[in-house]
Write a protein that binds this DNA or RNA. Sequence first.
DNA 1: GTCTATAATTCGATAGAC
DNA 2: GTCTATCGAATTATAGAC
Lengths: 189, 189
Amino acid sequence: MAAAARPRRSAATRAAILAAARDRFAADGYERATIRAIARDAGIDPSMVMRYYGNKAGLFAAASEIEVHAPDLTHVPRDEAAARLVRHFLERWECDETLTAMMRVGVTNEAGAERMRGVFAEQIEPVLAAVCPVPEEAPTRAALVASQILGMALCRYVLHVPPAVGLTHDEVVAWLAPTIQRYLTAEHP
Amino acid sequence: MAAAARPRRSAATRAAILAAARDRFAADGYERATIRAIARDAGIDPSMVMRYYGNKAGLFAAASEIEVHAPDLTHVPRDEAAARLVRHFLERWECDETLTAMMRVGVTNEAGAERMRGVFAEQIEPVLAAVCPVPEEAPTRAALVASQILGMALCRYVLHVPPAVGLTHDEVVAWLAPTIQRYLTAEHP
DNA sequence: GTCTATAATTCGATAGAC
DNA sequence: GTCTATCGAATTATAGAC
C-alpha cells in the first residue's frame, strides 16, 4: 500500500461529471442544464465541476466531443453507400445522446453551432468527398446529405413528430437512401 | 372628448412587444430571451409585458403564432407541386423570423416542440394529404417532406453551414424538389 | 480531492404610485 | 396605461476549510 493507498477518484469523478453533463445537455439544452443539476446527477459537489472544467462553457466543450464515426464508403458498392450511411446514423443517434445534445445546443448557442459546423467539415465532408465524382462539388453534396439526415433526426429524436417516430429503421432507410444516393452521385441538376 | 379622449396606446404597445419578442426568441431561444431585453427593445417597461401577456410562457405563445400558408397544391400540376412547395418555404423562411424562433424554441422547450407538432398536424399534413394518392400514407409522407424541408432550414438558417447558405433559391429547388416529389407521390418502397 | 459558505448577478414576477 | 421599486429565487463562480 505504498503508492496507491488512498483511492484517487478524480478519474472516476471526471467521467461521472461528463456522463451527467451529456445527459443534461441532451435533455435540457445549454441554458437550462445547470451545473448544480449535473453535479447532483453525478453525486458530487457543484464546485468539483468548476475545478475540473473551469466553467460551464468548458464543461460543454468537453461533454460535446463528437465522434460521428462515419463509415468508410470507398470500399462499399456505389449503390449501397447511401443505405449504409442512413443506417449508420440511425444507430449512431439512438445509442449516443451526445448527438441530441449537440443538436439542442447547436440551435440555441453560437458556440454549439460552430461545433456542429466543425463536425460537418471535419468528419462528414471528407468521408463523402471520397466517393464524390467531382471533388469541388463535395461540400454542396455533403450539405445536402446533412440536411436530410439532420432533418430526420430533428423530427424523430428531438421534435418527436409522431409519423417520423413511428417509422422502422428499414422504412427510414428505404425512404431516405434514394435521396442520399442522388445527393451523393447524381448529376448536378 | 367624451369617449376616445386620451390616447390609448395599448394596441401599439402590444404590437411593439410582440415584434420585439419574435426578434429575441428567434435570436436567442426561449431561455436566453429575457422579458427585460424584450421590453428594452420595445421601448417600454418590463412590467408591461407581464400585464399584457401574463407571464413568459404566455408571451411566447402569442409571439409564436405561426401561419405557414402552405400553398394549395390541388390545382397545381402534379409534377410541379414539389418545386412550388420548396420555393414557398424558402421565401416564407426568409421573410419571417418567427419560423426560426419556432425552431430554436421547439428544439429546447417541450411547449415549443408541441407547437411545432401542432403546426405540422394542422397546416402541413392536410395540405399534403390533398395530393396524396393513398390517404392513410399521408402522415408518413408529410413527415418525410417535413424532415427534408426542416433539415435544409436548420442547416441554412440556424446552423449556417456554409455550403447550405451558399446555395441559390434555384439550386435548392433543383436539388430538393425531386426528393419532395418522391416523398409525395412515389410508390411506397 | 472534496465540500461549505457565500459573493455577485440576473431573472421572473408583484405591489402600488401616478 | 405606464412606470418605479423591489422581492424571492436561481444561477455561475470564487475563497477557503478539512
